[in-house]
Write a protein that binds this DNA or RNA. Structure first.
Lengths: 100, 100
DNA sequence: TTACCTTTGACAAAATAAGTCAACACTAAA
DNA sequence: TTTAGTGTTGACTTATTTTGTCAAAGGTAA
């Protein structure tokens, strides 16, 4: 289901950390991390960064996944989701170029 | 600032409706509609549809603008916003194709 | 003045998200 | 068969965000 959750779970396991220990390190409740890894609760960007750091993983792609998931969540079941993404992309490029 | 707000304001004026009257027709407070048209508050999709109907305008592009604005709002000031959009697009296409 | 118009800010209420906790079920080692 | 570890669940509280309501202001024109 959740790409980000899966990835972070794998990274945690690769780092040899239990859910409890990882949660403690980043200062959240175990229950919450468990739910986040299984896509039952949303990550925050800050937490993603903390976890990337803890797992010694590169955070860029994780942040991209985080944002992308957030966007997809907003657009799920929308008939014009794809069109909306294209418009958003166009506007973002414009803004970037124009520095608005 | 807000494309959608501007568009809906223009449509309202073209329909010859005052803010008060339009707001009354769609059953919201004038203050709220005023703020929405100026981008100070967010539209809901339902309201966009109601307004499109009231102004006798085609709602498709308005809904696309609405969604796109929502997405851009989530991604504003994000370094990886564009990358996130691309990932989201890819996943959405995949989902659509696979019917997941 | 009167009668409209839009905008503003302050506040209350409702809805969502985030945090906390205790208990459960499972596995494996002692 | 205890003990200690694992992850999961649900109920609950608290905090934050969003939404709705209202009154008043300032503008314009008859």
């Amino acid at each position: 289901m959740s790409t980000l959750g899966l990835k972070l779970r794998e990274l945690r396991e690769q780092a040899g950390l239990s859910l409890r220990k990882a949660a403690m390190q980043v200062d959240i409740d175990v229950a919450v991390l468990s739910k986040m890894e299984r896509g039952e609760r949303k990550f925050s960007k800050e937490l993603v960064l903390k976890l990337a750091d803890l797992y010694k993983a590169n955070s860029d792609q994780l942040v991209i996944d985080f944002l992308s998931e957030k966007v997809l969540y907003e657009l799920e079941d929308e008939d014009f989701g794809l069109e909306a993404l294209k418009v958003a992309e166009k506007q973002m490029k414009y803004k970037k170029q124009k520095n608005v």
